[in-house]
Nucleic acid binder design. Structure first.
Length: 457
DNA sequence: TCTGGGGTCCTAGGACCC
DNA sequence: TCTGGGGTCCTAGGACCC
C-alpha cells in the first residue's frame, strides 16, 4: 500500500531556542524576523496569549514584557544546523526522504507493514527525533501527502497520539475530514477558503464531498489536486527542491533606511555575492539578474520610490564578480534615472503587501532634492541552468576555465575561514547596512566558542 | 520610530509566427 | 465595405507554501 509520512517540527524556531534554554519549556517563547521586525515563530503558550504570526514587534512589545515572554532574534545558522540533525535522523527511517522545508520532510513508507506496525513505527520516529535532538515533532501518515499533513496536525494537537496520527482507512479518513477546518487544508489558502465559505463549505469533509466537475469549474487544477488527495488519490509530486529555479537575497534595513548610494551599493553587492555563492553551492549558473530597492511600504509621510531593473547575460555565469558588477551597474543606472520613472510603473516584485500605485512617484534625484530613504533592497537571479552544460557565446571575452579555478579557490578559502573572508571590494570591509538583532542567541552547534560546556562534579 | 525572507506553480493575455 | 485561423512563447499577476 502506498503510504506517505510527513514529519513536522513543532514551532521549530522556538523549539531550537528551547533546546539550549531548557528552562523555557512550558513557557511562552517567540522568535523575531530579521531586524527584530515581527513575530515569526511562537510557542504554544505564546499562541495562547493571542500573539499572531507576523505581528510587528513594536506593537506587541508591551504584551511580551507584561507576560514575560522569552524573545529571540532569528538565528538561522542555529536553525539550519538543527534542521540538518533532524533530517539526518529521519533519513534513517525511509528509502526516500523529501526535505520540504527547514522544519518539514516527507518519508515514503509504502509497503512497510500493517496498520499497527506503521503506527508504532511513526511513534518511534517521533520519540527518537525528540530524544536525539531535543526537537519535538509530529508525524502524520496517510495514502496521500495532503492527508498526511492533516494527520500531523492531529498528532500535534492531541497528546494521545504519542506523536503520530495514522489515517489509513476510509472510516478514519472521513472522521478526520469532518473534524478538520477546510482553511487548514494544505493547498487551501485564505482566498480559496473565503470562496468556499461563501458556498457553505467549512470542513474538509464538505469540500471532499463536492463533485470534481464543480471544483474544476470554480478553481484551477491545483485545487482539483488537493480535492483528489483528500479523497485518497495521491497526485501531488514534489520535484527536487534542492535545485532552485530562482534565488533571492534581500533585506530590510534597520531604522529609517538608507539614502546614501555608497551604502546601498555595498548592500546590493553583498546580496549579489550571496546569490552567487548559493548558486555555486547547487552547481548552477544563471543568466538573469534583477536588482531592486524600495522605500517603506508603510510610511505615508515620505514619497515612495521603487527601483528595479533586470538584465540577461549572453553567457550563463556563476561568477561572483560578474553578478555583483551587473547588480551594481543596474543600481547606479536606476538610482540616477529614478526621477524619470513613470509613476504608474510599479514593477512586479515578490513583496507581500499590495502596493498603492497612486502613491508611487519620482524618487532619487527628483526635484525635491532629497534622496529617498530605501528601506529594503535585494537581488534575484533566475534563468538557472546546470553548470555542467553551459552554452558558450561566440564573442565571449572571458576565459571561463581560469574563472572557474579562481572561484573554486575562493569558495574553498571561504569555506575554511568563514564566508566573505575573500570578497569583492564593492562589498565593503565593514557592514554599513547593519541589521538589528538585539536578542540573538549563540551559535551553539556551529561555533566552537559557543558550544555549551558541561561540568561534572 | 519600529512592519521578514524566502520559494513554487498556474493562468490569461499579448506578441509573434506561418 | 469586407479584416482568418491556428499555434507557441513570454510575462505579469495571483494564488499557494514554509
Amino acid at each position: 500500500m502506498q503510504l506517505f509520512a510527513v514529519a513536522d517540527c513543532n514551532n521549530f524556531y522556538c523549539s531550537c531556542e528551547r533546546v539550549f534554554h531548557p528552562e523555557l519549556v512550558g513557557k511562552p517563547v517567540v522568535v523575531l524576523s530579521n531586524n527584530d521586525g515581527c513575530v515569526i515563530a511562537r510557542s504554544e503558550e505564546a499562541k495562547k496569549l493571542g500573539l499572531k504570526m507576523g505581528d510587528p514587534f513594536f506593537q506587541v512589545r508591551e504584551l511580551l514584557e507584561r507576560e514575560r515572554v522569552a524573545v529571540f532574534s532569528s538565528n538561522y545558522t542555529l536553525y539550519g544546523s538543527m534542521s540538518g540533525r533532524v533530517m539526518s535522523l529521519l533519513s534513517q527511517y525511509t528509502p526516500t526522504l523529501d526535505v520540504y522545508s527547514i522544519d518539514e520532510a516527507f518519508l515514503d513508507l509504502s509497503d512497510m507493514g500493517d496498520s499497527s506496525y506503521i503506527k508504532r513505527y511513526g511513534e518511534q520516529i517521533a520519540s527518537r527525533v525528540h530524544k536525539a535532538t531535543g526537537i519535538p515533532i509530529s508525524v502524520g501518515i496517510a495514502p496521500t501527502k495532503t492527508l498526511a499533513k492533516m494527520g500531523s496536525k492531529f498528532a500535534k494537537k492531541y497528546k494521545g497520539y504519542r506523536g503520530c496520527c495514522l489515517i489509513d482507512t476510509d472510516e478514519r479518513r472521513w472522521k478526520a475530514l469532518e473534524l478538520f477546518p477546510v482553511e487548514d487544508v494544505w493547498g487551501i489558502g485564505r482566498r480559496i477558503a473565503k470562496q468556499l465559505a461563501y458556498y457553505g463549505i467549512t470542513t474538509a469533509a464538505d469540500f471532499a464531498r463536492q463533485k470534481e466537475s464543480w471544483v474544476r469549474g470554480k478553481f484551477n487544477v491545483t485545487t482539483v489536486r488537493t480535492w483528489k488527495e483528500l479523497n485518497g488519490e495521491s497526485c501531488i509530486v514534489l520535484d527536487d527542491m534542492s535545485q532552485k529555479k530562482s534565488i533571492c537575497t534581500s533585506r530590510s534595513f534597520s531604522g529609517q533606511g538608507i539614502s546614501d548610494l555608497g551604502i546601498l551599493e555595498e548592500a546590493v553587492a553583498n546580496f549579489a555575492a550571496r546569490c552567487a555563492s548559493k548558486l555555486r553551492r547547487q552547481h548552477s549558473c544563471c543568466q538573469g539578474i534583477t536588482m531592486f530597492a524600495y522605500t517603506s511600504l508603510f510610511r505615508e509621510d515620505v514619497p515612495p520610490c521603487f527601483l528595479q531593473q533586470s538584465v540577461q547575460l549572453s553567457v550563463p555565469t556563476q561568477d561572483t564578480a560578474e553578478i555583483v558588477r551587473a547588480a551594481v551597474e543596474m543600481l547606479h543606472e536606476r538610482f540616477s534615472s529614478a526621477s524619470q520613472m513613470p509613476s504608474a510603473s510599479v514593477p512586479h516584485l515578490p513583496w507581500r503587501k499590495k502596493v498603492d500605485n497612486s502613491r508611487v512617484e519620482a524618487g532619487a534625484g527628483s526635484t525635491t532634492g532629497y534622496a529617498p530613504l530605501f528601506k529594503k533592497a535585494g537581488v534575484i537571479i533566475w534563468n538557472i541552468t546546470s553548470a555542467r552544460v553551459v552554452q558558450q557565446d561566440l564573442f565571449d571575452t572571458v576565459d571561463r576555465s581560469k574563472q572557474k579555478a579562481l572561484l573554486e579557490a575562493v569558495d574553498e578559502i571561504n569555506r575554511r575561514n568563514g564566508h566573505d573572508t575573500v570578497r569583492i571590494a564593492t562589498q565593503g570591509t565593514d557592514v554599513r547596512f547593519g541589521l538589528q538583532h538585539e536578542y540573538l542567541s549563540h551559535q551553539y552547534t556551529t561555533n566552537i566558542d559557543d558550544v555549551i560546556v558541561a561540568k561534572i562534579k
